[in-house]
Simulated assay, not measured.
Amino acid sequence: MGRWEPNARGRLAQAALELYLDRGFEQTTVAEIAKQAGLTERTFFRYYTDKREVLFWGAGELQRTLVEATAGAPATATLIGAVAAGLDAATATFEEHREASRRRQSIISANAELRERELIKLASLATAMAEALRQRGVADLAASLAAEAGIAVFKIAFERWIDPANQRPFSLLIRESLDELKTVASGGY
Results as ranks from 00 to 15, higher is better:
residue 56 F to K: 05
residue 149 A to G: 11
residue 167 Q to G: 15
residue 179 D to K: 12
residue 5 E to P: 06
residue 65 T to H: 01
residue 168 R to C: 04
residue 169 P to Y: 11
residue 157 A to W: 11
residue 156 I to Q: 13
residue 92 A to Y: 06
residue 118 E to P: 00
residue 110 A to T: 02
residue 106 S to M: 13
residue 170 F to D: 02
residue 83 V to P: 01
residue 66 L to Y: 01
residue 118 E to V: 00
residue 48 Y to Q: 00
residue 30 V to F: 00
residue 73 A to F: 04
residue 67 V to S: 04
residue 14 Q to E: 15
residue 82 A to L: 06
residue 59 A to D: 09
residue 122 L to D: 14
residue 124 S to G: 15
residue 64 R to E: 07
residue 89 A to Q: 04
residue 1 M to D: 09
residue 132 A to G: 03
residue 132 A to V: 06
residue 94 F to G: 04
residue 164 P to F: 06
residue 129 M to L: 15
residue 18 E to H: 11
residue 158 F to T: 03
residue 164 P to D: 07
residue 72 G to Q: 04
residue 181 L to F: 05
residue 34 A to S: 06
residue 96 E to N: 10
residue 122 L to M: 15
residue 145 L to N: 13
residue 72 G to Y: 04
residue 148 E to W: 08
residue 62 L to R: 05
residue 152 A to C: 04
residue 45 F to C: 03
residue 143 A to K: 04
residue 189 Y to L: 14
residue 10 G to A: 11
residue 130 A to R: 02
residue 106 S to N: 12
residue 187 G to C: 02
residue 67 V to K: 03
residue 114 L to V: 09
residue 10 G to H: 10
residue 80 I to L: 09
residue 43 T to M: 09
residue 12 L to V: 08
residue 85 A to H: 13
residue 127 T to V: 10
residue 43 T to R: 11
residue 113 E to I: 07
residue 23 R to P: 07
residue 102 R to F: 03
residue 52 R to N: 08
residue 18 E to A: 12
residue 108 I to E: 09
residue 80 I to H: 06
residue 12 L to R: 12
residue 178 L to K: 09
residue 108 I to V: 15
residue 15 A to V: 08
residue 181 L to S: 00
residue 71 A to Q: 13
residue 12 L to N: 05
residue 122 L to R: 15
residue 38 G to M: 00
residue 76 T to R: 11
residue 8 A to I: 14
residue 121 K to F: 09
residue 54 V to D: 05
residue 181 L to V: 03
residue 74 P to A: 03
residue 110 A to K: 04
residue 131 E to K: 15
residue 71 A to C: 06
residue 178 L to C: 11
residue 104 R to I: 06
residue 69 A to G: 04
residue 145 L to T: 14
residue 139 A to W: 02
residue 75 A to P: 07
residue 36 Q to V: 10
residue 74 P to Y: 00
residue 41 E to R: 12
residue 18 E to N: 08
residue 110 A to I: 00
residue 111 N to Y: 01
residue 78 T to R: 08
residue 57 W to S: 10
residue 97 H to T: 05
residue 14 Q to K: 14
residue 5 E to N: 13
residue 168 R to T: 14
residue 163 D to T: 07
residue 93 T to E: 13
residue 165 A to I: 01
residue 3 R to Y: 11
residue 113 E to R: 12
residue 152 A to H: 00
residue 75 A to W: 06
residue 8 A to R: 12
residue 185 A to T: 11
residue 114 L to M: 08
residue 146 A to F: 01
residue 82 A to K: 08
residue 39 L to A: 01
residue 159 E to C: 01
residue 116 E to V: 02
residue 104 R to L: 14
residue 119 L to D: 14
residue 78 T to F: 05
residue 182 K to F: 05
residue 80 I to R: 11
residue 143 A to T: 04
residue 185 A to C: 10
residue 167 Q to V: 14
residue 159 E to Q: 10
residue 35 K to Q: 14
residue 40 T to H: 03
residue 189 Y to K: 09
residue 20 Y to M: 04
residue 61 E to S: 06
residue 68 E to A: 09
residue 168 R to I: 08
residue 2 G to N: 15
residue 49 T to C: 00
residue 21 L to F: 02
